[in-house]
């Protein structure tokens, strides 16, 4: 029966999907057809799926790194937003300033700023934990709210577009955005960047000294301490790396899709990274799969939303149920037999 386990997730997800459709009183076969054609029916569908799964993959990877290090970062959303904000600040000077910097310099600089922004936001939570013992779960959630408020302020204040009419930042010109495959599709370079990053994260976690230390601290910090590994420093590193990835997700969303920031900049991408990481078994390469599936659900449900009132609510319901199911099954599988005290 053990070989059946890899099938558990796709089959389970499919069952949940069908059940959800039934509960929503949607025609099951027609809806499934719409979902599939919307997500993978033609090249536009594939492009939509890839683009939607990109921020999911990156924030998911961010969660993987932090959670592997024993830091339960729930602040992907805030780190995503602050990353985007840092990028917008740099863009304000380099793209909209009087400097006339060429795009092949501004794009990497903006992305680096996003990475640093996300890292800084996560570092705050890490520092609070290491120095003051503040639980990361709580501090990162609260930092999310702060980031959302700061975003709202920035978009109607210092970063607002030049005409000062709408609460948005200036729209980046096309040549300052990430290059796209074709003008008709959204498919952009960020998709490739995300895949490369997933592989890099895998190599970092499982093939380097620092990644090994990080995993060890996450698995058993007492053991790490007894072997003279600097636990606090490793935890801070885990948070910063996690924040970097979420910040990068924000940057790629900014430069790939949105082109400007507004209060709706993040569509919960930071939060959705958590189910992506969980269903990916906290493994960077499996996250490619889980991010792909959720991306496909988002892409497919766009068409579905045009025909029914259920819309994207459906996707959230499916996601939530999938995570609950996964956590339940995992808890059952991970149960250890009672051990007699020695």
């Amino acid at each position: 029966m053990k070989w059946l386990r890899p099938l558990l997730f796709p089959v389970g997800l499919f069952v949940i999907l069908v059940l959800t459709l039934v509960v929503f009183r949607l025609p099951v076969l027609d809806s499934l057809k719409l979902l599939v054609t919307g997500a993978a029916g033609d090249k536009f569908g594939w492009s939509r799926t890839a683009v939607k799964s990109t921020p999911l993959l990156l924030t998911g990877l961010g969660m993987v790194v932090a959670w592997r290090g024993g830091m339960y970062n729930i602040g992907g959303e805030g780190q995503f937003i602050v990353g985007g904000l840092f990028g917008a600040i740099v863009a304000k000077f380099l793209v909209f300033g009087s400097l006339h910097v060429p795009p092949f310099i501004t794009i990497p600089l903006i992305l680096i700023a996003c990475v640093l922004g996300g890292a800084a936001w996560a570092w705050l939570a890490g520092w609070l934990y290491v120095r003051r013992g503040v639980e990361v779960v709580i501090s990162t959630i609260l930092l999310n709210f702060i980031a959302i408020q700061v975003l709202g302020y920035a978009c109607s204040g210092p970063l607002q577009e030049m005409k000062k009419q709408v609460p948005l930042t200036d729209l980046l010109p096309d040549n300052a955005m990430l290059p796209k495959l074709s003008r008709q599709m959204d498919l952009h370079l960020g998709v490739v960047i995300a895949w490369v990053v997933a592989i890099l994260v895998f190599f970092y976690l499982f093939r380097t000294r620092s990644g090994y230390r990080l995993r060890l601290v996450g698995e058993n910090s007492n053991m790490a301490r007894a072997n003279r590994i600097q636990v606090d420093r490793t935890r801070l590193l885990a948070m910063c790396l996690s924040g970097s990835l979420c910040g990068l997700a924000g940057g790629i969303e900014y430069l790939g899709m949105a082109g400007q920031l507004g209060s709706g900049f993040s569509q919960q991408w930071g939060f959705l990274g958590i189910p992506v990481a969980l269903l990916g078994g906290l493994h960077p390469l499996l996250c490619l799969g889980s991010a792909g599936i959720f991306g496909a659900l988002f892409a497919g449900s766009e068409d579905l939303a045009r025909f029914t009132q259920a819309g994207t609510t459906l996707v959230y319901v499916i996601q939530a149920m999938a995570v609950l199911g996964y956590v339940g099954i995992k808890a059952q599988l991970d149960r250890r037999p009672v051990v007699e005290p020695s």
């Binding site: 060890l216 058993n220 007492n222």
Partner: peptide, 9 residues
């Protein structure tokens, strides 16, 4: 178990 090993590794 608490200081010597990471049991799930």
């Amino acid at each position: 178990q608490s200081d010597g090993l990471a049991l799930s590794m």
